[in-house]
């Protein structure tokens, strides 16, 4: 018994998966070779984050919690590099730690080296570990360390060591970065760059210091709620947020020497193509469904 010929609606609803995958690979590859500038209107949350970092003073250090690794490199690496460029340009010292992933401190060090190399390339003094920044390492319990930071920062980090200028592991409070820090309010801000929900843990437990975040797209809507209620002073979400930061830096004469357009500008045009493909795929599926329904009726 021969099968009934498939209708247009059925065909539209059952395009083969390999074809979709190949189309996606092609459409996310070809635009990467074209350098296209896309006009941008930064979101208010990104503007607030940018202004918070821009107005930081070099007198007080900041605390950075970095919980991202290469698994979210597409968004988090660009966010982290943008942040490092701004902080290094303004000579703001910082202390980095991680509460989300054991790989995160090493990843942070690697990307600080990348931004340092940019500074050397355009004739600026690179940031020196120990004098300008310290990496406090990884804490396996985000809840415990966030509580400790709020209650007694000195004791929370007292056992952490980083290599001093001679290469000897030394308690980080002997570093010029933290020598005047006794409690968390001695930091001018706490910034969190994360690809996971360690952002929620920080919001629940960190007090007495302005908090701002750079999160991935997945965490965006959930974290937006805290920005709307004023618990966060700024929020950068995903690739769009990263591009907001880069476009603001490009227009800012203060950062004219820095490499402002980087990962965000490279990926953003391709994101357009990918999102159009997603929208088209959904439309084609629904058109197929309506055609099939009408035919059945």
């Amino acid at each position: 018994m021969s099968q009934a010929p498939r209708s247009l609606g059925d065909k539209l609803q059952s395009l083969p998966k390999p074809a979709l995958y190949i189309v996606l690979i092609i459409l996310t590859s070809i635009p990467l070779f074209a350098k296209v500038s896309i006009p941008n209107r930064p979101a208010k949350a990104s503007i607030d984050f940018y202004n918070l970092v821009k107005n930081l003073s070099a007198d007080k250090p900041i605390l950075i919690q970095t919980d991202w690794t290469t698994s979210t490199r597409g968004e988090s690496a660009g966010e982290f590099k943008s942040l490092m460029r701004m902080l290094m340009h303004k000579h703001v010292k910082f202390c980095i730690y991680s509460a989300g992933d054991p790989q995160a401190p090493q990843v942070a060090r690697d990307y600080i080296d990348i931004v340092n190399q940019e500074r050397k390339d355009h004739g600026d003094t690179p940031y020196v570990g120990w004098s300008d920044y310290v990496v406090a390492g990884y804490f396996p319990s985000a809840e415990a360390i966030s509580n400790s930071i709020t209650n007694n920062f000195r004791t929370a980090f007292q056992d952490k060591k980083d290599k001093n200028l001679q290469g000897t592991p030394t308690p980080i409070f002997e570093s010029p970065v933290l020598s005047n820090v006794n409690k968390v309010s001695d930091f001018s801000a706490m910034l969190i760059v994360t690809g996971s929900n360690t952002s929620n843990v920080a919001i629940e437990r960190i007090k007495h210091v302005p908090l701002a975040m750079m999160v991935t797209g997945v965490m965006g809507p959930e974290t937006q709620v805290y920005y709307d209620s004023g618990q966060l002073k700024g929020l950068v979400t995903g690739l769009k947020g990263l591009y907001d930061m880069e476009t603001q830096m490009v227009k800012d004469p203060d950062f004219s020497k820095e490499k402002s357009l980087d990962q965000g500008a490279a990926y953003y045009p391709t994101l357009h193509i990918a999102l159009v493909l997603m929208i088209l795929a959904v439309i084609i599926g629904n058109v197929g469904m309506f055609i099939s329904k009408r035919r059945a009726a």
């Binding site: 319990s141 809840e143 415990a144 360390i145 509580n147 209650n151 929370a156």
Partner: peptide, 16 residues
Amino acid sequence: EDAMPVVSQLTNILAG
């Protein structure tokens, strides 16, 4: 207040 950071350390070490 003094015990809080010690308890937090304990949590971190046990979790480790």
